[in-house]
Amino acid sequence: MNPYFITANDFDAFVTKMSKDKKVIGPKAKKQKFVFGEIKSADHLRLDYDVTILPPKKVFTPTCQTLVTFDGDKFEGNVDNDGVILFGVHFYDIRGIDITDLLFRENNRDVNYLAKREASTIVGSNIQNVSKRSFWGSIGTSDSGPKGHDAFLTKMDGGYVLECLTQKGEDLVKFGNWSKASAAQVSEAEKINKDVMDKCSQKLSHSSSEIAEKVRNSFDNQELWSNLAEDCFSCGSCNTVCPTCYCFDVQDKWNLNQVSGMRNRYWDSCLTEDFAKVSLGAGSEENFRETRGERFRHRIMRKATYLNEKLGTPACVGCGRCSAACTADIADPVNVINKIMEV
């Protein structure tokens, strides 16, 4: 696979041509913020974004996804295998996708996620602007870099370098006036991506393994968790915006005729009160995580320790979306974890 270069002048034509041929999802402006959305021409594309409100997981596992449609006793699966080009993804979000890829693949392959995922092409892009709450510079280990992308785009003076990693990535070159990148351009791209790593204003104070151990050992510190969660609204915003949260609820919906309908899955949040609640009948119920503190702890445990062995990294990529989304501003993993480390 080759690295390619395109001039800034030719780049827009590339994006426009690519988006005429394929469905391209990339970062777009929404007022002063950014979201991933369909790119129909180059002027939609905002590669200078800092972070999007929702992570790109929504492309492969939409907020509401129909799993099965039914009509009386007849039913059929509803697998979406239309691939898209997911363009301009920052490395931390590729890492998020790497994590959901693994979790949807392990044990039981979830084709409702994987069909679209595997048919899609992911193109990363370098971070031009660093979001205020991000801390990706200080999380993970040296070998926990992004893996699931097909190509990676880096903007530099005068143009862009595209590093192709798979044939799917290589296939994009035909849409634009790309030429072979020089060794100097390639090393310039590497430098840009390396230099950005210490640009986050927020940092975790310890290594991921130190954090994992301390957080786990703090499990029984009830006072700590209930203090941390005192202002929690149980609104689940921290889950909803998280690139590695993938829990879902399944609900059936009737069409108005009450004969046909669909079985949908919706993003769910372990911070909401009913997440682990079971009805036992005769009005009694059991909530396996009844208090705010228990639910808050579960999220931190999941991000910092529970999945580390399976993933080889924490299940947090440092995007800072939860920090920004939490109205009470208690979700910020940097504040929470640095506080736990001091206890």
Partner: peptide, 17 residues
Amino acid sequence: RRMKCGVGKCGHCQIND
């Protein structure tokens, strides 16, 4: 537990890892 999906995906019945 609240074993909603039954196939280890939905997260509702998670206990630790």
